[in-house]
Simulated assay, not measured.
Amino acid sequence: MMFEGPGIIFFFLSVGAVALFGFLAVAAWSGARQQERESYYKNDMLKKLAESDTQSAVATLAYLQEKERAREAKSEAKKREGYLLGGLINIGIGIGLIVFLTAIVNDNRAVGLVGFIPALIGVALLIAAFLLSPKKAA
């Protein structure tokens, strides 16, 4: 038969790899294009506002500045949440590794101490989340 042996598996994996990387390329291009359009329209609007000298232009600029501050605050909050989540996940992995390695190695319990490496990385991420990243403005 024609569809037997390792050749079909290689063909399937090759087509899958080409499809995956083709999709990733199109998705990256599409995201960059959308960001470019948003930037263009924003700059065009700011140019038109700068040319007009009305009260509504001042109000619109104040609105845009407030929107930019809100976007930055949201970005910082998301970054802080990422540090918190990463820290908690690493602590959980470290504790699980300590328990697992201690359970499978009965004669040498010091092997379980390897789990302290990811646990301490998690603690460092939690410290970074609480101390180094800025808190929400009141």
Rank of each mutant, 00 (worst) to 15 (best):
Q34L: 13
Q34R: 15
Q34G: 04
Q34D: 12
Q34T: 15
Q34F: 06
Q35H: 09
Q35V: 13
Q35A: 15
E36A: 15
E36Y: 10
E36M: 13
E36Q: 14
E36P: 00
E36N: 10
R37S: 05
R37M: 06
E38Y: 06
E38P: 01
E38T: 05
E38F: 08
E38R: 06
E38I: 04
E38V: 03
E38H: 05
E38G: 00
E38N: 07
S39E: 10
S39D: 05
S39M: 07
S39C: 03
S39I: 04
Y40C: 05
Y40A: 12
Y40F: 14
Y40H: 13
Y40S: 06
Y41K: 00
Y41C: 03
Y41L: 12
Y41E: 11
K42H: 08
K42R: 15
K42S: 07
K42F: 07
K42W: 07
K42M: 05
N43I: 01
N43G: 08
N43E: 12
D44H: 11
D44P: 01
D44C: 06
D44Y: 08
D44V: 08
D44I: 06
D44F: 11
D44E: 12
M45A: 15
M45N: 09
L46I: 08
L46P: 05
L46W: 09
L46A: 05
K47N: 06
K47V: 08
K47C: 05
K48A: 14
K48N: 10
K48R: 15
K48G: 03
K48T: 05
K48L: 14
L49M: 14
L49R: 04
L49F: 07
L49W: 08
A50P: 00
A50H: 09
A50D: 12
E51G: 07
E51T: 08
S52K: 12
S52Q: 14
S52I: 11
S52V: 12
S52D: 14
S52T: 13
D53T: 11
D53H: 15
D53C: 05
D53N: 15
T54E: 08
T54C: 03
T54Q: 04
T54N: 04
Q55K: 10
Q55V: 11
Q55L: 13
Q55A: 15
Q55D: 14
Q55W: 01
S56N: 06
S56Q: 12
S56A: 11
S56K: 04
S56R: 08
S56M: 11
S56C: 02
S56V: 09
A57T: 10
A57Y: 02
A57C: 07
V58L: 15
V58N: 08
V58W: 10
A59S: 03
A59E: 04
A59L: 11
A59G: 01
A59P: 01
A59Y: 01
A59K: 02
A59R: 01
T60I: 11
T60Y: 02
L61S: 04
L61N: 10
L61M: 12
L61P: 02
A62N: 05
A62C: 03
A62P: 00
Y63N: 05
Y63Q: 06
Y63H: 07
Y63A: 15
Y63C: 02
Y63G: 03
Y63V: 02
Y63P: 01
L64V: 03
L64Q: 02
L64F: 03
L64D: 00
L64S: 00
L64N: 02
L64P: 00
L64E: 05
L64C: 00
